[in-house]
């Protein structure tokens, strides 16, 4: 039961601006993913919410209460670190009980709560294990349980599964989603994996160099990226720079009519929305066809060397060296970092 409010938060380390004028409100029980390339300020933002960094300016409030300068031990937040950060000199039970002991709970209740949370993360009976006797996935589960056992108002996860293999990561991701929905806990999840963000989030915040580029539900971020950066960052996207003249977008090998004022523009087309047909002009030539069974990805070289990707239903219909004509079915057009036209989506 908690709402998180971040207002105009900036963090400057010496000379580097890590987070710049960031605004976000996370609703009660919502799961928001912070997504962005390395160094975009995701961890810094999360650490400011957890109290491990102090915002240079701006306000962070939980349930309306300003916590900007409150130390971490007095914040109702729980953080799960990428490197699990379990206390190696304590066994699993003691790791989970430490926070409860600090709250002076009676031993019987501590035992009950630790056992309950171990059950929740699927590690019932692991209390007496030493942390180094656990697998990577189990260690991360214990780290998650260590936060959950204190019933934080806000759960913060900083790339918690980044060090695990793909398979385990997907499974734990599902488990976190289930737990989060069951407990209805307000959650911020940092990742730089777009698939993770798309699979988990109620809303995605796309960060770039400390600024938020877009804050929207996953389908909107995917289908209607607000900026060329978001378009290129989420999923596969063909970004084609060109010029609009008299209502026609022009790039060598690709002309496209659109109701847009004259000037430079960037055309963004997903591979699945880029239609191809056999043609005689050599302006666009197939470089390679990759067969994925269910579909094929066709790499196409334009005359100026730009390589595009198109999705085709059947690999056998196409061969390298064939000249093709391109017809974008759904696309967006960007100018000055904002979308000025969308079609077909």
């Amino acid at each position: 039961m908690a709402v998180l409010d971040i207002k105009d938060v900036t963090k400057i380390f010496g000379g580097t601006v890590a987070v710049e004028r960031f605004n976000l409100t996370v609703a009660d029980g919502e799961l928001v993913c912070l997504l962005g390339p390395s160094g975009s300020g995701k961890s810094t933002l999360l650490r400011m919410i957890g109290g491990f960094e102090t915002a240079t300016s701006g306000v962070i409030a939980i349930d309306g209460e300003d916590v900007t300068r409150v130390p971490p031990e007095r914040r109702p937040t729980g953080m799960v670190f990428q490197s699990h950060a379990l206390w190696t000199h304590m066994n699993v039970f003691k790791n989970l009980a430490f926070g409860l002991k600090l709250r002076r709970l009676p031993p019987a209740e501590i035992k009950d709560r630790v056992e309950a949370v171990l059950e929740q993360v699927g590690l019932a009976g692991y209390g007496q294990r030493q942390t180094h006797q656990l697998s990577g996935g189990q260690q991360q589960r214990v780290a998650l349980a260590r936060s959950l056992v204190l019933e934080p108002k806000i759960l913060l996860l900083d790339e918690p599964f980044a060090s695990l293999d793909q398979h385990l990561r997907e499974r734990l991701r599902e488990e976190v989603r289930d737990l989060q929905q069951r407990l209805k806990i307000t959650t911020l999840f940092v990742t730089h994996g777009q698939d993770e963000a798309l699979a988990l989030a109620d809303r995605i915040v796309v960060l770039r160099a400390g600024r938020s580029e877009q804050i929207d539900p996953p389908d909107v971020v995917y289908r209607a990226p607000a900026t060329p950066f978001v378009a290129g960052f989420i999923g596969t996207m063909n970004l084609i720079d060109g010029v609009v003249e008299g209502g026609v977008f022009r790039h060598p090998g690709l002309d496209l009519a659109m109701p847009v004022a004259d000037g430079p523009a960037t055309l963004a087309v997903r591979p699945e929305a880029l239609g191809i047909a056999a043609a005689t002009s050599a302006a666009a030539v197939i470089h390679r066809v990759t067969d994925y069974g269910t579909h094929a990805i066709v790499d196409i070289d334009l005359a100026d060397g730009l390589r595009l990707k198109a999705m085709a239903p059947d690999a056998r219909a196409w061969a390298a060296g064939t000249a093709v004509a391109l017809s974008p079915q759904a696309f967006a057009v960007y100018r000055d970092n904002v979308a000025i036209h969308r079609a077909g989506a």
């Binding site: 971490p72 031990e73 007095r74 379990l86 430490f98 926070g99 600090l102 780290a143 260590r146 936060s147």
Partner: peptide, 18 residues
Amino acid sequence: VDRRMEEAARDVGASPLR
């Protein structure tokens, strides 16, 4: 000593001295 371990302890409510 892993700083994250210390931060995790702060996170669950321990004072710096603790």
